[in-house]
């Protein structure tokens, strides 16, 4: 009996969705756009978080040395860094290597570098930390100790960057949830109104179902399924559009962004995020229908 009823509900839902296709199309568009906004910000946030994670996994302290520092003193600093218990690996980068690396990363700057008569880069020592989870204050103590050395002009620790990018990722997520939240609320109201219109349009049918012994649940289920279908279809459509955007964005816009491409690009949602989006769509649809039915379908 359950199977026959389930078949009936699905057939009714499909019929009803088709019967009022114009109004369903418009509501679907709004739902899709709402979820697309959330999806876009989530994708940006995912990308930023991944970048921050990459940086955190490979924590490097760069000690910039004074120009024209005697080789003996440079060796001394290198030895000092190498002997620290926090450090796993040390790499000395000469001014020529630094210049070459910059040219590799930013080929557009070649002319500027050529116009400079001298190499502007100092020699540096890159120290990779043994454990990325090393307490921050312990690393900071090591850096302060090294800074006391007269040959060390400046120190750069990429954990600062990792933290900043992590905050940016959280910000992007928050903005996405805020904007998306408002739009999803709009979707909820739209679904609720669409179901209200459908209830009114099928008033005589509902009346007949009541008189032939239809239960409240039996009459309400197709309306609830309609709302859930609209919500889920909207979010699925938004995920599909997001997939297209994430594929097309690097091709058409990515190159023009240059070095920023890495940061301002989209990483498609994780499996759990995809499931959450679809379930969220269904839930919004369900709540929209339910609120409408409880107000306009009193049986």
């Amino acid at each position: 009996m359950i199977i026959y009823k389930a078949k009936y509900f699905l057939r009714e839902t499909a019929n009803n969705l088709w019967q009022y296709k114009t109004r369903h199309f418009f509501s679907l568009t709004i739902i899709c756009l709402s979820f697309l906004i959330v999806g876009l910000f989530l994708a940006i946030s995912n990308n930023l978080r991944d970048r921050a994670d990459d940086l955190s996994k490979n924590l490097v302290i760069v000690f910039y040395l004074q120009k024209s520092l005697p080789a003996a003193e440079q060796d001394l600093i290198e030895q000092q860094v190498r002997h620290s218990p926090l450090v796993a690996d040390v790499r000395v980068i000469s001014p020529a290597e630094a210049s070459e690396k910059l040219l590799q990363d930013f080929p557009g700057l070649k002319d500027i570098l050529m116009n400079l008569q001298t190499n502007p880069f100092p020699a540096s020592i890159e120290a990779t930390l043994k454990d990325p989870r090393t307490p921050y204050d312990q690393t900071l103590r090591f850096i302060t100790e090294m800074k006391k050395n007269a040959g060390v002009e400046d120190v750069q620790f990429n954990r600062d960057w990792a933290d900043k990018i992590q905050s940016l990722s959280r910000l992007a997520q928050a903005v996405g949830f805020f904007l998306g939240g408002i739009l999803i609320l709009a979707s909820f109201i739209i679904i609720s109104n669409v179901i209200k219109l459908n209830v009114f349009a099928r008033k005589s049918e509902i009346e007949i179902l009541r008189l032939v012994g239809g239960t409240n649940t039996f009459i309400r289920i197709p309306f609830l399924l309609e709302g859930i279908s609209l919500g889920m279809a909207g979010s699925l459509l938004s995920l599909f559009l997001l997939l297209i955007i994430t594929k097309i964005f690097p091709v058409y816009l990515g190159t023009s962004l240059g070095a920023l491409q890495e940061l301002i690009s989209f990483r498609y949602l994780s499996f759990s995020q995809v499931i959450s989006m679809v379930a969220g769509g269904g839930f919004v649809g369900f709540l929209g229908s339910l609120s409408s039915l409880s107000r306009f379908l009193r049986i």
């Binding site: 026959y4 009823k5 012994g213 239809g214």
Partner: peptide, 9 residues
């Protein structure tokens, strides 16, 4: 419709 409400096969 009168049979659908009772879930008749």
């Amino acid at each position: 419709v009168a049979l659908q409400v009772i879930g008749a096969p």
